[in-house]
């Protein structure tokens, strides 16, 4: 085994290979790091895989999350109110990795806290902590080439976001900086639209994307329950659930959130079977 085989993207590849072998879509669960406090957030993180999360997306809180709806805005405010920092978020990942070396974990957030921490230092520390990939909402490929190259050198996947507004002409540049999987945003809007199952013809949208990439295709934004997740699982390689989970955590606590994860996983497995 070469050292390269041990680099983090292989965790994402392995997990997608497992799901493919089981002929089902992967469940990607988003929680905000430090919401509502560090200890309970760390505990929830460790319980997500057993509840059925195939891939964990961990939000890095930011004071001004311009692509996020109310649920994730408030989760970020709760985390920041409890004193969450990027340093603490990375420490959470290290702690998670002490007991789980197989579940892929990707960080999602905004550029400013990363730049403030120092881009190179962040990438180095993220790789060392056991992060597998990064989604940086406000770093488009036009400005992200250097960041992507450094991330790749460290074995971190840069997961590209593709929107309904993205024309085919932009895809080569976007996907050239993409690793891990592609995150297809389900609708034009911010996260957590009420009653927001994917709009438009997702099947043909994903088919068009597949012409441009061999990476697994995940769909997220507005997927709130098992039925919606199962519907998307029928056409995508992965289903991302964020706002609904964050809301459930807020209203029903960690047990409520884990129950939702179990429901989502069960629903997606049923539809696959």
């Amino acid at each position: 085994m070469s050292p390269h085989d041990l680099t983090p993207p292989s965790r994402l590849q392995a997990r997608f290979a497992t799901c493919q072998a089981e002929q089902r879509a992967a469940l990607v669960t988003y929680v905000m790091a430090g919401d509502p406090d560090l200890a309970s957030s760390q505990a929830l993180l460790s319980q997500l895989p057993a509840a059925g999360a195939d891939i964990i997306e961990l939000g890095m809180p930011f004071s001004d999350p311009m692509a996020d709806g109310e649920a994730i805005q408030r989760a970020g405010q709760r985390a920041l109110g409890d004193g969450q920092t990027l340093t603490r978020t990375l420490a959470m990942v290290s702690e998670f990795r002490r007991q789980d070396t197989t579940t892929p974990l990707v960080l999602m957030g905004y550029l400013n806290p990363i730049q403030c921490y120092g881009e190179t230092r962040f990438l180095t520390d993220a790789a060392a902590a056991g992060v597998d990939g990064l989604i940086v909402v406000d770093l488009p490929p036009e400005h992200g080439a250097g960041f992507t190259a450094r991330a790749r050198d460290l074995g971190l996947a840069r997961i590209p976001l593709v929107a309904p507004t993205t024309p085919a002409s932009r895809l080569p540049a976007l996907l050239a900086q993409g690793d891990g999987f592609v995150y297809r945003i389900a609708y034009n809007g911010i996260t957590g639209r009420a009653g927001g199952a994917p709009s438009g013809d997702m099947t043909s949208a994903l088919a068009q994307l597949r012409e441009h990439t061999a990476l697994p295709l995940a769909v997220g934004f507005g997927i709130r329950d098992g039925d919606a997740a199962a519907a998307v699982a029928g056409v995508a390689d992965a289903v991302v659930v964020g706002s609904a989970l964050v809301e459930r955590l807020d209203t029903q606590g960690p047990e409520g959130a884990l129950t939702l994860v179990r429901e989502l996983a069960a629903s997606m497995k049923r539809s696959a079977g």
Binding site: M66, A67, L111, V137, D138, L139, P140, E142, H143, P160, L161, V162, A163, P164, T165, T166, P167, R170, L174, I185, N188, G189
Partner: peptide, 12 residues
């Protein structure tokens, strides 16, 4: 300067 926005807005 630059154009640091989410992908949905980039084409627009």
């Amino acid at each position: 300067g630059g154009r640091y926005v989410a992908e949905t807005l980039m084409p627009l």
